[in-house]
């Protein structure tokens, strides 16, 4: 068996590829990019939610939000660790992010303008994450799959808290329900865009499927998300901002309207509402912290010298 055949055989039998196994360069590079961008998404995702920690309307909500954002930092860290098993350093991956050469999930390029946005993000974004993460626990690369198992275990409260937040708003005062509807109006379409372009337009899809880095197509994931979420919106008494949304009994799925692909590509190219802000914030934190990291390194070196 050639290395390529052995590699594909491991994948085909649903076993895992581990860090020191032979792998095609394309597999390694695709994984580095995907895992890193997943990690970057978790880290950048801390910003829109972190934005409301100091203004949370109750101590209970403040505690939940703090815990959720800390979890996301941890998830980013697990994912960077998984990427590092492939021969890159975390600093290197961060630099690619800072320079705009690596991207992150487009959803985080939208601003969190009201408290209800915390609910919308938890409900829709984490809802989208469910449809993706379970799939990724079956990814062929061991370290990535294992990081996903760990992440999925910790996600359970993330999914619920956002939706519960909206239940409170929708059962509360008229201003609160209005806040919730406004948030849904702004976050619905960007949530659908999170699943990426139609697979016909997606260059990498077929190869990623063969390598079991990707297990389900973008369109199928998007449909799964819509089917799951529409009844949830109905329960809240909120209206999804899509006049073409309709149950199709023949297909057994919801039909929905056309995504504004111009907006989608504009955001992907770095021209979303908060694209500049997210990266500037990340860069600033990194640059402002340089002296701190240097101090810790210097101290460690001094201690090592003293111990010698």
């Amino acid at each position: 068996m050639s290395p390529e055949e052995r590699f594909q055989a491991i994948i085909d039998e649903e076993s895992k590829i581990e860090p020191t196994d032979w792998m095609p360069e394309g597999y390694r590079k695709t994984l580095i990019r995907q895992i890193a961008q997943h990690a970057h998404s978790e880290i950048i995702g801390m910003q829109p939610e972190g934005n409301w920690i100091t203004r949370a309307p109750s101590l209970y909500r403040k505690a939940i939000l703090m815990a959720k954002v800390q979890d996301e930092a941890g998830h980013g860290l697990y994912l960077y660790s998984a990427a590092e098993t492939l021969g890159v350093t975390r600093d290197h991956l961060q630099e690619l992010l800072h320079q705009g050469k690596h991207k992150y999930s487009s959803i985080f390029n939208y601003p969190t303008l009201t408290w209800a946005d915390m609910g919308a993000i938890g409900w829709l974004v984490d809802g989208a994450a469910i449809t993706n993460q379970v799939m990724l626990t079956r990814c062929s690369y061991g370290p990535y799959a294992r990081a996903m198992v760990r992440i999925c275990k910790e996600e359970s409260f993330h999914q619920r808290q956002g939706y519960e937040l909206l239940i409170r708003l929708c059962n509360g005062a008229p201003e609160q329900k209005q806040m919730a509807q406004d948030a849904l109006d702004r976050w619905w379409w960007p949530s659908l865009m999170m699943f990426g372009p139609s697979d016909a337009d997606s260059v990498h899809s077929e190869q990623s499927m063969k390598w079991k880095i990707k297990r389900v197509s973008n369109d199928d994931l998007r449909q799964q998300f819509v089917d799951m979420t529409v009844p949830q919106a109905d329960y809240l008494g909120l209206t999804i901002p899509d006049p073409d949304l309709e149950w199709n009994a023949e297909r057994g799925h919801y039909d929905f309207g056309d995504i504004d692909w111009e907006e989608f590509w504009r955001v992907v190219k770095g021209n979303g509402p908060m694209s500049r802000d997210r990266i500037e914030h990340k860069n600033r934190a990194w640059e402002d912290g340089a002296w701190v990291r240097a101090a810790a390194t210097a101290y460690a070196a001094k201690q090592a010298g003293r111990a010698a």
Binding site: K29, T30, I32, R33, Q34, I35, Q37, H38, S41, V88, T89, R90, D91, H92, E95, L96, Q99, K101, H102, K103, Y104, S105, S106, I107, V125, A128, A129, T131, N132, M194, F195, G196, P197, D201, S202, V203, H204, S208, K214, N218, L221, W265, V268, K269, R293
Partner: peptide, 25 residues
């Protein structure tokens, strides 16, 4: 949800390259 954020038409797919000046951390 995709983390394989697609390459926009006209953009190059920078998979990963050596960057000068990035320290070991």
């Amino acid at each position: 949800m995709t983390y394989d954020v697609p390459v926009a038409p006209g953009e190059k797919a920078e998979l990963e390259e050596r960057i000068e000046g990035v320290g070991e951390g």
